[in-house]
Amino acid sequence: MAAASARRPRLAVWKFASCDGCQLSLLDCEDELLMVAERIEIAYFPEAARRMLPGPYDLSLVEGSITTPADAERIQRVRRQSRRLVTIGACATAGGIQALRNFADIREYAAAVYPYPEYLETLATSTPISAHVPVDFELRGCPIDKGQLLEVIKAFLADRKPAVPGHSVCIDCKRRGNVCVMVASGTPCLGPVTHTGCGAICPSYDRGCYGCFGPVAGANTAALAKEFAALGVARRDIARLFQTFNAAAGAFRDEAERHGD
């Protein structure tokens, strides 16, 4: 304890292509935030503090995906200044909702949105941070769960592996005592193939899981998609179910493509 107070580890929070929701989860920690600030020096966090201290940093939390040539460069500099680099949220871990561009022509998108798209300098794809630099840990979710974010920070402080389980949403849904919305109501639900983390929020409110935490390891999306079809979900809607915040994540991307036009 004494050593830790002598020199607090330095934290940096970085934003790439994203909505800022995940880094706000840190501010959302409210009760725990003061304790975090006691144990860690928040050295670089433009969303929260005017004072921005130069690197190197002991822990970098990186939000957002890489969508521009400038960001592809910048992430290299972030990595060089960071002892540990943890990516937070679906954008940083899977490319985010903006990875829908990966399945389309970005020039057409840009022309539809901006009056002078020629001024944009953008990449054809939105890619996760891990496609550019080595990442020490990926914390999933859209947005991330603040309890899990605290666990990652606590694990970093204790120099241990974060206790972030990798099972399906169904395990947590059943632990909560929920009635399965798919079996009891015929509601399509991505829970069986989705990585846990949220605590099964949507099925607890009688909705199917939207897959915010991305595919679980070894996700059998093909078998689930077949069941969705049996429930009467149209082919195009099956593709859409898989094409949201984790559209570019392995098994979800593949399943959407299998149900493409």
């Binding site: 204790a158 169904c170 059943k174």
Partner: peptide, 27 residues
């Protein structure tokens, strides 16, 4: 099989558990 684990959760005899340590920030 989705390997989602639902069968084991609803099974009245499945008994397996795991343990998790949850620590406070200041240890």
């Amino acid at each position: 099989c989705l390997t989602c684990g639902n069968c084991t959760m609803v099974c009245p005899t499945c008994f397996c558990t795991t343990v998790e340590d949850v620590a406070s920030l200041d240890g």
